[in-house]
Amino acid sequence: MKSVTAQDLVKTYGTKKDVVTALNNVSFEVEQGELFGIIGPDGAGKTSLFRILTTLLLADSGRATVDNLDVVKDLKAIRKRVGYMPGRFSLYQDLTVAENLEFFATIFETSIQENYDLIKDIYQQIEPFKDRRAGKLSGGMKQKLALSCALIHRPGVLFLDEPTTGVDAVSRKEFWDMLKTLKRQGITILVSTPYMDEASLCDRVALIQTGNILSIDSPAGIVDNFKPTLLAVRANQMYPLLLDLQRYEGARDAYAFGEYHHLVLKSGFNEAGVRSYLDRSAHEGVEIKPSRPVIEDCFIALMKQPTGAAADNHQPSA
């Protein structure tokens, strides 16, 4: 069963003269129990998409369903079945941890006891602070409380809008561990993030940029679709090296990538060619090796391809 479907969703803001297109014909499907990632930078349309799917915003055109219910016609039924954690902390700052959780349980006509097993692993970490006001919690604790509140009515589909933005690497890792536990309970999870490295933790991902879906596939599938030769190159002076790599005739693209630079080759060029090109320069300590592309390489390549090609990629591949 499809847990979530979106078909040709369009959302624009602004006036006729000055239109901002947040979503441009977005279509995809999410299977029951899937952990589906929406990966893209700020301004990609992630929040608009989540607000449409959670019935909080109307699309200009297109259709969407959650649990086979229409997001426009069946909004009341959908609201009972989805959990939504917005990007901005939106619990009551002047209620305590326990009061917030109690409040959300009550409005969904359930109780903390009834669904405690679902939130236990997460809530236990903040339970020692249950009498503290939510506004006085640290970032990581707020996040755990917000997730507990979004889960307390045992939703079928969970929407998490940038839960890890601005969160340090350790807390990010912990958060993804929590998501894996939830997935085992059969909850469908849609999660958005600007961090490309988090894509590999999802079952499938949609890469999205300025309202256009660039690609939808499993993380492995997206990486497999990256065809050109990718080299990792370093030298003692990294910035001059980058400028030289960008000037290389065989370079389709060259960009910094952590410890190394990544050099994407045009067809017909190879590692030996790069080596002899760099031998003619003044660089010292040159190291060149083949590299496996990761999601970020794919995202960069998709961003730079002509928009016509990106438009062909709209249809869900599942």
């Binding site: 930078p41 700020d42 933005t165 600007p194 980058l242 960009y255 910094a256 960069i300 961003m303």
Partner: peptide, 14 residues
Amino acid sequence: TGGVDPVTRREFWN
């Protein structure tokens, strides 16, 4: 560079 796309993030570092 929080939330900035991967291409712009690199332009920023340049």
